[in-house]
């Protein structure tokens, strides 16, 4: 059985609830938290790799949705088109996981760490030259 990667978005009110703990405990799943973060406006994001019986996974996802958690498959790939990027830094303050970050405060070079990206797409529209692309 192949583990599934899913992206969870927790609304503000649910952040302090033990939702993921119950998911694992009640549905007999194993999991691996790949990324987790809370944005400044208090939305929580988590990328989970879950493994277990297919039916259990489906039930688990239903449980999450019932709790008000947004569940999406991790199928999007965010890329920065460096030819278009003007190295301004606008995205750095927007990215909730610091996947977009300033590599060097002396040259102010902007860099992208795909490992940290949760594909939330918050950076897409604010990027002035629209240099950040979503690939499916």
């Amino acid at each position: 059985m192949t583990p599934r990667k899913i992206v969870l978005t927790f609304p503000k009110e649910k952040i302090d609830k033990p939702i993921v703990y119950k998911l694992i405990k009640d549905h007999n799943l194993t999991f691996n938290i790949m990324k987790a973060s809370i944005t400044p406006d208090q939305e929580g994001h988590m990328v989970l790799e879950i493994d277990g019986e297919a039916a259990e996974i489906e039930k688990g996802i239903k449980y999450l949705k019932d709790q008000g958690v947004k569940v999406e498959p991790l199928s999007k790939d965010i890329k920065v088109n460096w030819d278009k990027c003007t190295q301004c830094g606008v995205c750095v303050a927007i990215c909730p996981t610091a996947a977009l970050y300033i590599k060097d405060r002396k040259t102010m070079e902007v860099a992208f760490d795909a490992q940290k990206c949760i594909a939330c797409e918050l950076c897409i529209r604010p990027c002035p030259p629209r240099a950040i692309e979503v690939h499916f």
């Binding site: 301004c88 995205c91 750095v92 002035p128």
Partner: peptide, 22 residues
């Protein structure tokens, strides 16, 4: 350029619109 300033006692993350690197 440090990435954070203080405004009205609150720490606020900063970002450039103009590119220092360019």
């Amino acid at each position: 350029k440090s990435g954070e300033i203080e405004v009205k006692g609150k720490k606020v993350p900063t970002a450039g619109i103009s590119s220092y690197r360019r």
